[in-house]
Nucleic acid binder design. Structure first.
Lengths: 205, 205
DNA sequence: GAAAAATCTTGAACATCGTTCACAAAGTTT
DNA sequence: AAACTTTGTGAACGATGTTCAAGATTTTTC
């Protein structure tokens, strides 16, 4: 006999599954409490026994997306730790392209990571914040090879900057509000930007 | 005696004023049709004689924001047309910092430019799309000095990339979902990025 | 094992939205 | 002045997230 807590846990996962699917297919506005309840076969009010509110649900989906994104970036780091500047640059390009590919393949879910805003007054829980930091890790390592002389905090800041820059190119490139950038061009933009930055770093002695 | 059309036009402006104020103070979720109606002293339904729907209203506010942003960037281009690479780089830095300052000072309105999504099925009108293109202009001119040998379409793409990169740094830097970046650090990040790109461009023969 | 207590589930009800629409008011034309 | 057209009005509609009293279920107690 399954205990109540276990069943609830199973239902919570079903709920997040359904929410993830809904967002992936129809975007954040396509996430409806009533549809979710019907999907997982429970009453409307029962959702609030599984999550506090819709915000938490969105954050949980975001957590999953972040984990998959992290895995995708890790997969792009196929080789061993880079030692030469050339290898470091190649890895940065690979990670950036993987980021772009992930965003394209998971457009709606990826957008939620950045576009979702908590309800008035609500605050983002700590675990959600700290999760995001893991992204910079993929940049910090190759960057340490490129600029070994800089202090760690400064390298951390540079990681953040480089990540943000690539993110910006991807975000605006995939924004259909502007004229859509063809896939090939977008990849070339990213490659060009990362190469440019690496070249700039190489000269900076 | 004021004609009906003129009065309506005046009311439309009042409506956009009120909407702009509401968004600036409380963000996009703070934009309520009923509050706007009360603010400008008309019936709820009368709003739909002034604009087609809320989407159009948001778009019109965005148009204003874009115009002010354009003016702010223009103001940052105080000197004459850059001729040397050094001048071009300085101007790019100045424009980027002005972009950051504008975003910070108009946080909610600036966000709407990128985060607002049209209702299901609705399409962004042409005028809204073409307006956005004007932003790249501020980058294209200095960039033409830095890389005069590249073809125009490629320079256009580079402008877009550089703009997007700076935009990304600003967007993530001002995102309170992550740990907030102090103003000074954010400015330094941007300056560093633009300098890095310029240096990379200078070496690229 | 049955009764009692605690817990969970339910779906109707509530508060808010944007949006519509029949009707009244105002303006325009004949 | 009367007929017609346009415009303004706010109640009503359909969605939405969230709550809550009451019924169903599980757990505890003796």
């Amino acid at each position: 006999m399954t205990t109540t807590a276990a069943r609830r846990e199973r239902q919570r996962i079903q709920l997040i599954d359904a929410a993830e699917k809904a967002i992936a297919e129809k975007g954040l506005p396509g996430l409806k409490a009533r549809e979710l309840a019907q999907e997982i076969g429970c009453a409307l009010g029962a959702i609030y026994n599984l999550v506090a509110d819709m915000d938490e649900l969105v954050l949980r989906v975001g957590s999953r997306t972040l984990a998959r994104l992290d895995a995708a970036l890790s997969a792009a780091e196929n080789e061993a730790t880079p030692v030469s500047a050339r290898q470091a640059a190649d890895r940065l390009v690979a990670v950036a392209l993987a980021y772009c590919a992930f965003a394209r393949d998971n457009l709606q879910l990826w957008r939620v990571l950045f576009e979702h805003r908590m309800a008035e007054g609500a605050v983002v829980p700590d675990w959600a914040v700290s999760e995001q930091m893991t992204l910079f890790r993929h940049i910090l390592e190759p960057l340490s090879v490129l600029v070994p002389d800089r202090a760690e905090p400064e390298r951390m800041l540079m990681s953040r900057t480089l990540f943000s820059a690539v993110h910006g190119v991807v975000a605006i490139g995939l924004e259909e509000k502007l004229i859509a950038v063809p896939r090939r061009d977008l990849d070339r933009q990213i490659e060009g930007l990362v190469h440019l930055v690496c070249r700039g770093l190489a000269v900076s002695t």
